[in-house]
Every structure is written in structure tokens, then in C-alpha cells.
């Protein structure tokens, strides 16, 4: 079975936030007003933020300052704290190691959002809205599994949503291979953030395939995880700076 994994090379990342915007357009993330965003209601499945989070980001005195940035999709943990606490299995790990979210089953108890140490889960505080022109450019894709909506389908108010490694793209690529009557190859599918990355800092592929880029990179001495001590066994890999 494939084990999808993303590798982010922080050495190459220029913190352009392109991944965040690409994710937003691909996955129909609703836009919130600046006041709401200031109140922590903004939804960014893929976030770009300065490191360390709780100390002033620019360290040192001008002109000798240094700034670290990190970008953060979902970690798709192997021992996902969010999956463990969901009372109705609205969030689950599929056979290919992707932590997915079923919008039609979620009861909005927000236990998963509290349990996630990475803060990658977002709650729909109000009915999602798009400005007129923006609404026209919404992604028409949606994933329906056993009649339940997933992926970029527009989320109703009161449910939790999260990064899915653009799982609808995987389904699409599989379908295409099937139509064309050939075997599906792991390199036929990448999430939108990987596709758009300015510095080519993101890699995506099958971690269980020893020849894939990601599994080669995972052997790098720079390879590390975000909050490795969280006990969640995060999967998304980072190649450390410096």
C-alpha cells in the first residue's frame, strides 16, 4: 500500500505563502473578514508562520537579524490524537495514511481541534462566505465517499475541516489512469501546495517506495518532524535549516 508523505525543505522555503493561497483556492477555504481573522477565526489549512511562535520572530539587532519561518500542512500523524478522540469517526486515517474528515458526520464537538498539538484543524464558526468574484472561481471538485462529502466540497457551518493532502486529486489521478487503461503511478499526483511551491521546497510521494524522492529525503540527516516529542508520530517531514 502506498503511504503518502510530504517533505518540506525549510532551506529552500522562501516563505512566500504561495502554498497557503494555492491550498485556499484548491480546497475552497472560506474567506473571513479582517476582524474575524484577528479574533482567530481565519482558516488556513496550510499556514506559514514565524518560528519560534511565542517569542518575537526577528532575533538580533538590526541589521544583524535572523528570521525563521515554517510552513505547516497537516502532519497526517500515524498515531493521530484527533482520530483517537473523535466520538463518531468523522475523522479517520485511510489505508494510504491520509487523515481525512467526513463533513457529513462531524457533530462539531471540537474535541479534535483541542486534541491536535499542531493546530491544523479548523472549525467553521459561521456560514462560509465568498465575495462575488471569488465565488465564481471556487473549485467545482468534490469528493463523495459513500454519499458523504469530503475534500474541497463546501463545508456547512459548525463542522471541522482540515488539510487532506488534496485527496480529491489522488482520486482524480486514479480515475484518469483507469480511463486511459494503464497502471496508476505514485508520481501522477501531488497536492496543490507542492505543485505551486516557488522555491521547489516541497516534495510529495510514497514513503514506502524506497526509490521515491520522499523516502530518499527521509534518510537525510536534516530530516526531522515538527514537535517530535508530541507522541503523535507525525508523518510530514521537514528538512531542517542550516
Amino acid at each position: 500500500m502506498t503511504n503518502w508523505c510530504m517533505v518540506i525543505d525549510l532551506e529552500k522555503c522562501v516563505a512566500c505563502q504561495g502554498c497557503s493561497i494555492a491550498c485556499r483556492m484548491e480546497n475552497n477555504t472560506p474567506v473571513v473578514s479582517p476582524e474575524e481573522a484577528k479574533n482567530g477565526r481565519a482558516i488556513r489549512w496550510n499556514d506559514v508562520f514565524p518560528l519560534p511562535v511565542h517569542i518575537a520572530p526577528d532575533q538580533g539587532e538590526y541589521p544583524n537579524v535572523k528570521t525563521h519561518y515554517s510552513t505547516r500542512p497537516c502532519m497526517h500523524c500515524k498515531n493521530a490524537p484527533c482520530v483517537k478522540v473523535c466520538p463518531v469517526q468523522a475523522t479517520f486515517i485511510d489505508e494510504e495514511g491520509i487523515v481525512r474528515q467526513n463533513y457529513d458526520r462531524c457533530i462539531g464537538c471540537r474535541f479534535c481541534t483541542v486534541a491536535c498539538p499542531y493546530g491544523v484543524r479548523y472549525f467553521n464558526w459561521s456560514e462560509p462566505q465568498w465575495e462575488e468574484t471569488l465565488a465564481e472561481y471556487r473549485n467545482p471538485d468534490q469528493l463523495s465517499v459513500n454519499g458523504s462529502l469530503e475534500g474541497p466540497a463546501v463545508r456547512p457551518v459548525g463542522v471541522v475541516e482540515k488539510c487532506t493532502y488534496c485527496v480529491h486529486r489522488l482520486v482524480k489521478a486514479r480515475e484518469l489512469a483507469k480511463v486511459e487503461g494503464r497502471e496508476f503511478r505514485a508520481d501522477e499526483y501531488v497536492p496543490a501546495c507542492v505543485q505551486t511551491c516557488t522555491g521547489k521546497a516541497r516534495f510529495f510521494g510514497d514513503l514506502d517506495d524506497p526509490d521515491s524522492t520522499v523516502s530518499q529525503l527521509s534518510k537525510s540527516l536534516r530530516a526531522t518532524h515538527l514537535l517530535e516529542d508530541s507522541g503523535a508520530h507525525p508523518k510530514t517531514l521537514y528538512l531542517a535549516e542550516g
Binding site: 474575524e36 479574533n39 482567530g40 477565526r41 481565519a42 462539531g108 481541534t113 493546530g119 479548523y122 472549525f123 467553521n124 464558526w125 459561521s126 456560514e127 457551518v157 459548525g158
Partner: peptide
């Protein structure tokens, strides 16, 4: 929706 409260992320 719960946006009327001060709950946030």
C-alpha cells in the same frame, strides 16, 4: 453558528 461566541482558534 458558534461565531457569535468569542470562541476562536
Amino acid at each position: 453558528g458558534l461565531g457569535v461566541t468569542d470562541l476562536n482558534r
